[in-house]
Structure formats: C-alpha cells, structure tokens
Design a protein around this nucleic acid. Structure first.
Lengths: 217, 217
DNA sequence: CCTTTTCATACCGTATGACGGTATGTATAT
DNA sequence: ATATACATACCGTCATACGGTATGAAAAGG
C-alpha cells in the first residue's frame, strides 16, 4: 500500500488499535511493534508519519476518549435555562447515564496497573475538565446564588477529581458495594458544600455500571 | 570494589542514588546506567544482585519515602489519650510540621512530569495509608462518638487522597496562593463531614512550605 | 586453639534482544 | 511537478540475563 486517499482513516485506525492495546495490555507493555502487528499491513513509517512519538499517540488516545464527554460538558455549560447547581446535577446525571461507559467498562481491565494511562486521564481532568467546564459553571453558580464558595477553581478541581478519578471503578477496581459506599460519601461531601446534586435514580444507575464492570472481569 | 561486609549499606546507597535521580530526572528518564554512574565504582551486577528489576527499585524508593511518615501515623493511631477526631487533627498537624518535608521540597521538581513516581505515591496512599492508618482512626472516632459516618473505609480514602495528593504542591505545582485556597476548600470539606481539624497555625505553616517549594524552582 | 575446607553471598562485566525512533526511498494523489 | 502517504532498513539505548570471580564466615579437621 502506498498512498491513501483518506489519511484520516489511517489515523483513526492507528488510534483505535493503540487505544485497544493500551487498555488491554497497558501503555508501557504495548510496543510500537504490537500496534503495527494489528494494523493490517501498515508499517512503522505510517505511524511515525502521522504521530511524532509513542507518547503523542497516548495523548491522542486520551483526547479521543474524553472528546465526547467534553462535548457533553460544553453543551451543559452553555445552556441558558439552568442555574449553576442545576448544571452540576445535570452533568453528574449525564456522565453516569451514557451508554458509551458500558462499552469502555467491558473492554478495559483496571487502570491500577496502567500508570501512564491513568496519569493521562488524571492530567486531562485537572488541566481541561476542571478549568474549562466545571469552574465556569461554579462561577455562574456563585453569580446566580445557587453555589456558595470563595474558591471556584479549587472547588471545581476537587469535585471533578473525586468524581472522575476516585469514583471511577476502572481505576480503583471497586466492587458494587464499594462503589455504592463511595457514592454515599461523595453525596455527603457535596452536601457539605451546600450542593444537593445526587438523587436516588442516579444511585441505581451507578450500581448498574459497577455490575457491568464486575461481570466483564 | 571487592565485597562489602555490610550489604545493606550498598542497598541504601543504591536507594539513595536512585531516589535522588528519580526525583531530579524522573523515573523513566533515569537509566540503570545513570544510577551506576553515581554509585562510585559499583556495577550493574551489584544492582541486579540486590534488586530484581528497575521497577523493584522504584517500589523500594517509595517505601523508604513513606516509611517515616507511616511510623508517625502508627504512633498517633496507637495513642490512647486522643479521640478519633483529635488523632486526625494531630496527623494533619504533624504531616505539615515535619522538617523533612523541607528537604524533599528542595530537591524535588514537580511530579507532574513524573507519572511513575506519582503513581507510586498514589498507590501507597490508597493501599497503605488509608486502610492501615486513617481507617482505624475513623473507626475509633465512630466508636467514641467524635466522628459520624457509615463508611469509614471510603471516608478515609477520600480524606487522605485529598490531603496527600490533591494538596501536595509537589504534584500539582501550586503557587502559595493556590495552596492556601486549596487548604480553605479542604477545611470546608472536612467541616462538611463534621470534622474540625484545621486551625490557623497549620495554615501559616502550609504557606511556609509552599514558599520553600516555590523558591527552589 | 589454629588451620583448612566448604559454601553462601557480594559483586563484576559483557552479551542479548527488544524497543523507540530516524533516514531514506518510492509510489500515488492532487 | 510536487507534496504526501507510506515502506524498509537501520541506529543507539536500554533493561535484563548470566557466567564468572572475590570474599567472608562457619564448620570440620588437626
């Protein structure tokens, strides 16, 4: 194969394969050779034509993983019909309701043996999700009176870290029982900040998610 | 060099050198050769005699880093004169008061470009600090009435993650200002759990620490 | 009590294979 | 005609394995 009319298909193929392998075997235990072997004829030259390093592939994979989630966050952030607090609640509800989650949970073993991928998700949460999406919402909440804090940036970070990292059963390999308990603690924490964004419907869904993950092991 | 009568000195030497390099250059950017070059005559064979892999050295380095902190945690945990809540306060005070911290802050650049070391600290916090030290204290607090929660294990994890990871300026590369603000949010969070373990004296010390770290950059 | 033997352990130095990355060549689409 | 999309051969570095040597300490023999 020499030249492709649609190079972005090649890019996507590389990302799909890399994504799968990074999840299955871990970033460090996945070699460039492993990726090539699953590319169906493509070679090392193809990879290094589209990506400048293995690390670069990891960044792209993480971006793709969070892309959809970020789109959802942007939509809710930019709605005009909700208070800050209501937006937080909407985000929380959405993020545990989306079916994509199910797929991810089925493919992925836990991230607790995958430092680089975990770190990548961690960085994304701190550097993008918190400042670009949660923080503006909290600031709106301060303005409209639905949230009280003097420290919007820090509160945003703490909340999203707790939700995205600590409560992520992929990362902590939690049982259904533990997920439920974390959820209850999270709820109490949010109430401590004057935020009532967790209802029983969400709780049911969360247990469902954990069950899916447990079964796939 | 021939043979050492006290092999643990060799082990310590290796750990000291590795520790320094992992902090300075990052785990992944430190090669075994780099370590050897700073060992003063010792060879590759010596390293692989005492450690079975590079990864194994990282684990040992992390253990050594947290060893002293864990001893302190054990002492406070086992005291008989304090309530659960008082113990939490004592731990928090101790952990920001110890002078060792100053040294670490001086040597270490931020961990935000050192995924493996960060992950190692993260794992230690979740797998040891939380269950072995904080959790029993919270359970005591439940028994003596100074702490109210139905979920001691999860509360322990959340608190220690917030304190050890989120509030660690080495990890997040926080300014003095940001450290202060995180501290205030943490205080509010703890109050939300009915815990009043943060006083103004601690606050001063925390700003001091951040200043030390900032200066060393 | 001294010497010799035995054995485990500390350490050396090189070989090896895998890996990430690069330089260069070539065919194809525009 | 030229830039792009790849292929291929190759490089340097790295972690690790491993055969071998030096040394200490304990046990056995005198």
């Amino acid at each position: 194969m020499a030249r492709n009319k649609h190079p972005e298909e090649t890019v996507n193929l590389i990302l799909d394969v890399a994504s799968r392998l990074f999840m299955e075997k871990g970033y460090e235990r996945t070699s460039i050779q492993d990726i090539i072997a699953n590319l169906g004829g493509l070679s090392k030259g193809a990879i290094y034509h589209h990506f400048k390093s293995k690390e670069d592939i990891l960044v792209a994979v993480t971006d793709k993983m969070t892309e959809e989630s970020n789109r959802m966050l942007a939509v809710i952030r930019d709605r005009m019909d909700l208070t800050g607090q209501e937006k937080l609640k909407a985000i929380f509800k959405e993020s545990i309701a989306r079916p994509v989650q199910d797929e991810i949970f089925k493919v992925a073993p836990n991230l607790s043996t995958n430092p680089r991928l975990l770190f990548s998700v961690f960085s994304e949460t701190v550097n993008t999700a918190a400042p670009d999406y949660i923080r503006p919402i909290i600031e709106q909440g301060i303005a409209d009176g639905s949230i009280q804090t003097e420290y919007p940036a820090e509160l945003a970070e703490l909340i999203i870290l707790a939700a995205n990292i600590w409560m992520n059963p992929m990362i902590f390999d939690d049982s259904v029982e533990t997920s439920y308990r974390k959820f209850m603690v999270f709820r109490q924490m949010m109430r401590g900040f004057g935020l009532d964004i967790v209802d029983d419907e969400m709780l049911g869904r969360l247990q469902e998610l954990s069950t899916i993950y447990q079964k796939s092991k």
